[in-house]
Write a protein that binds this DNA or RNA. Sequence first.
RNA 1: GGCGCGGUGGCGGAGAGGCUACGCAGCGGAUUGCAAAUCCGUGUACACCGGUUCAAAUCCGGUCCGCGCCUCCA
Length: 449
Amino acid sequence: MKLRIYNTLTRRKEDFTPLNPDHVTIYVCGPTVYNYAHVGNARPVVVFDLLVRLLRHDYKRVTYARNITDIDDKIIEASQESGVSISQITEKYARIYEADMAALNAGPPDLTPKATDYIDQMIAMTGTLIDKGYAYKKDGHALFSVPSMSNYGELSGRKLDEMIAGARVDVASYKKDAADFILWKPSTETQPGWDSPWGRGRPGWHLECSCMIEDNFGDTIDIHGGGLDLIFPHHENEIAQSRCAHGGIALANYWMHNGYLTVDGEKMSKSLGNFITVHDLLEEFPGRGEAIRMNLLSAHYRQPVDFSHDGIRQAQKQLDRWYRLTDGVDTDGVKVPNAVLDALRDDLNTPKALAELNSLAKKAVNDDGAASQLKVAANLFGVLEQDDWFDGIVDDSALSEMAIGKLITERAEAKKNKDFARADDIRNQLSEQGISLLDGPEGTSWERR
RNA sequence: GGCGCGGUGGCGGAGAGGCUACGCAGCGGAUUGCAAAUCCGUGUACACCGGUUCAAAUCCGGUCCGCGCCUCCA
């Protein structure tokens, strides 16, 4: 089966055909690095990581880019409030972001362009847009003239007159039209800035993505992704900039947008204060990044996922089972079963794919081949990649292995003497320390919970 | 006000005209000194009201409820 993708641009599921059959290009909007990412921010990361894994399976070559916004008013604010330099802030949080996402088995993309490395390109594109009559300068600003583009609003399905009618914000004096957006804005003495033909300033937010794509991939990429909330205005404006700069050529052929992570049905967001950072969640569930990942993939990517600790626990139980079933299996030369691949190729139907994994798990009980397939398929999913899943986290307060071993020996003695009261006593004692004893044919083993 | 998404068994969650996924939890049983794990069995749910159809959770119309975007936002 061929990969099918729901394209926001056409509002339909379409067969995916890359421009170059041997090389797929994909760009996803990344973080503005001035604080910790919350679980909602992690959703697109996990979703598109899975998509890229699938693309790599199906195509010879894939280049995946995710930008880092390291110049932005919020970063400037954070720097001024804390007295810490902008580069220190952005480097710190970019590092944390990468580590937190890696804990969810979402490795770094092939390219992670930073906005501040593309200042020249942004100045150049702004110049091009002004030259072509799609942008203008006013009071140190450069602005994109939305009415100059005939088919503005294609992606979000908005009409210009409707937008103006619904405008909730006062129109800045330097804008010719309420819908116009900033390409370049002036910086004060105390704000960071770069020299440009329009004076010292800094780029508007939408511009970096257009320039990074142009610089790394050319006019058109195959897939452009991000969260639902980026459709308007961010992606709409990216399209406007790139198409007008490139003579009308499409910026991306397929636009994909993931749904929100919600909390009690409401969007998780910083302004509502209903967020939990990935960093904190990983402390709550140490070593269980895969369970968080599974939870994020438990619903179809375009549907909302309601965040709950219980959801993560559920995912963890499923992983526990799969880890037991696949312990020590040989995966050499084993292929991912088509049932799993086809579920994913159908617009990334992860719940269906998970059902297929469970079907393999059922067979794996007495079928080594199925166990191998489960492992390989789960690996494509980005789980079952740890070999220390049951080792748990050892901290200073935890019992040493030697102490546990001693208690197990003592319990074995008690069992031999039919002193089951003492044996249960030891089980309970260890259980309180988070250690489960498992009696098997070859004696007693243990796991940390 | 404009545009859009959704309401599926106790919970999570696919599906999308007939074959009624899947997971978690529960219940009954097997096994086990106990426990875990495992195995077998067990649940006719699709917001409401009409309509189309031989057949609707799936199509059409209406109603109610929840959510989102229109401003920074993954």
